[in-house]
């Protein structure tokens, strides 16, 4: 597998070759493909994309997100989902089809400030994303600490087939809920485990593109003090 990676900023020309432009790039003229974000460009097979290192979450249908209740009307809640749009959670999703605006008080279920694990049910940019919490593992989050990371680095935190997150969970005896919107909730009964898990997540966030990241996280988790030296990491790739 040949992936060519490089650090780029907006306006940087990634290639003039015959590639298909995908996320976070734009075509200039006939064939010049230019980055639209600060991030890491990837040329893979015949496509070009940039994994952004900054920016807000852009909702995608079926994504798991961690939202914060910021307001409610008599018919719905508004969730801050770390995006440019607010998540729209209709009351019927929680109370069921026989929801009655007279009888059912929304604040009895979710209050302002509550965190919820939700799934994006529908989104097309013309309306605010519709989210649902009516599924297994969804709903109000009752315990844990919130850690925020760049949404672009969520795949790295999960790791290949979940290896990274499993490593952290096992080593610290914690349960970690990862929202695609960069919100991560860490629940752990042991104070030191909690601290370590949070440290590991922050480490992935700040070193998302270094080599042997899993190894280095493991090393930190196994070290007694839970305080890794966050040394400046070197870049892994052939780029620059």
């Amino acid at each position: 597998m040949d992936v060519r990676r490089r650090y780029v900023i907006p306006g940087d020309t990634i290639t003039s070759g015959p590639y298909r432009p995908e996320q976070n790039v734009t075509l200039v003229g006939e064939k010049k493909i230019v980055s639209t974000a600060v991030g890491v460009s990837e040329i893979y097979d015949n496509s070009v994309k940039v994994i952004p290192l900054a920016g807000k979450y852009i909702p995608k249908i079926n994504d798991l997100v961690v939202g914060k209740v910021v307001a409610h009307t008599s018919l719905s809640w508004e969730l801050d989902i770390n995006s440019c749009y607010v998540g729209f959670l209709p009351a019927t999703d929680v109370f069921g089809r026989d929801f009655s605006a007279h009888a059912d008080e929304l604040a009895t279920k979710l209050r302002t400030g509550d965190l919820v694990a939700a799934r994006v049910a529908n989104f097309d940019r013309t309306r605010d994303p519709l989210v649902t919490i009516s599924d297994r593992d969804l709903g109000k989050i009752d315990s844990g600490d919130l850690v925020e990371i760049a949404p672009g680095r969520v795949p790295r935190l999960i790791g290949k087939r979940g290896t990274m997150i499993q490593t952290i969970e096992t080593a610290t005896n914690s349960i970690i809920t990862i929202g695609q919107n960069g919100r991560v909730v860490v629940a752990c009964d042991d104070a030191e485990g909690l601290l370590k898990a949070k440290k590991a997540i922050r480490m992935v966030n700040s070193m998302a593109h270094s080599t042997n990241l899993t190894e280095r996280v493991k090393e930190m988790l196994e070290s007694g003090n839970g305080a890794p030296q966050e040394t400046a990491e070197r870049r892994e790739d052939d780029g620059e």
Binding site: I9, P10, G11, N24, T26, V28, V34, T36, A37, V38, P52, L53, A54, G55, K56
Partner: peptide, 11 residues
């Protein structure tokens, strides 16, 4: 703007 991750065609 670039630091905020706002998509930009160029600086």
């Amino acid at each position: 703007l670039a630091d905020a991750g706002i998509p930009m065609r160029d600086m």
